[in-house]
Design a binder for these strands. Sequence first.
DNA 1: TCTGGGGTCCTAGGACCC
DNA 2: TCTGGGGTCCTAGGACCC
Length: 397
Amino acid sequence: MAGRIMHVDLDAFFVEVCRRRRPELRDVPLLVVGGRRDSRGVVQSASYDARRFGVRSGMPIAQAVRLCPEATFVQGTFDHYRQASRTVRQVLSRHAPTVVMASLDEGYLDFAGTERLYPVSLLPVAEAVRDDIRRETGLDCSIGIGTSRMVAKLASDFAKPRGLCEVRAGWEHGFLAGLSLAALPGIGPKEAARLKSLGLQEVAQVQCLSEEQLSRLIGPSARLLMRRARGMGSATLRPDRPARSVSRETTLPRDSRDLRQLEGLLIRFVGLVAADLRDQGLVARTVVLKLRHSDFRTVTRRRTLDCPTDLDQELMGALKQLLPPAFQEAVRRRQGIRLIGASATGLEPAAPLDLFEPEARTRLRALTRAVDVVRDRYGFDAVQPARTLKSARRRRS
DNA sequence: TCTGGGGTCCTAGGACCC
DNA sequence: TCTGGGGTCCTAGGACCC
């Protein structure tokens, strides 16, 4: 039995959410979301009018400014995106038994088992989904329908913007034949360039080869590419799994050579990461420090703990040992620090209660709970370690 | 020209154990 | 003195996605 998957993709999501929230942007055709003109960021999303100037998501803001100087540049609000995304998810859940959000602005619906309800086509359902989303959020979307996740996704790409596209069982081969290999999910710039250097650019070329021929040409990745080119892929949706990692990172407005400033930032990030872990009922076995040097070289240093934890102090303890040597490495290379981040990985569910826990740790846990209560009420920054307070005051003066 | 922030998954080498 | 093979865990880096 072929799968029946629908992929719903919001059009210019970040731009349109900003428009709904800020009426003064409603009639600004050239709108770029991601950061102000002088920011060190990249474009998150550009209005369709701005895209005509060549502005694309992922492009440095500075480059977008040069391509489209007339555009208005704004920094969006993550919370607004999250709220809009939640509403969309609710709409989707009314139409299909299984819904999986792949990110804030796209979701998959699984219609397995609805063959009697919709024997031939899912297009009428797609129309209803599109209308409901439009009515309840004011946002437009594109919808693809296919026998696997991948085909549904490619169909919605094909339908953009504001379109519907259904690829029925048996049509996959023909639909995919018209695409370039770079359009396939999982084929990024590197792999696309490698394939091109071997003479492969179109899906149709791969479809003509046997797996053995392809394998001789491109090596061990042949099997996967062959499956993709034929539209084979997971035909059912796995429900959302718990997070595999939690992280916070930032690119500094200016490169830093100040170890104490970096440590202050790290303390704040660890606080946010640990709060996330507690919120999700998880503990982390491993912490990772991430630094990016001025020349964009990125290094990570990690440490696995004896005992998994969700406590700021225990995570920070490990990071405090990792930071100085990693910082010195940058100094030796005569580089400043451009980006710093902390992440927790090796996650597992928090154990309910440890009767043999050392008393000091029990006290730490109680203190942490008290801090969480205050922060729930007054915001994360209502409670701050003295270290970060001091550096905040220094920054202000 | 200057490259975000949140993730996932994969690879490869080394330590260690049996 | 020279030396196996498999499994697991850990670390570091990188490709990729939105």
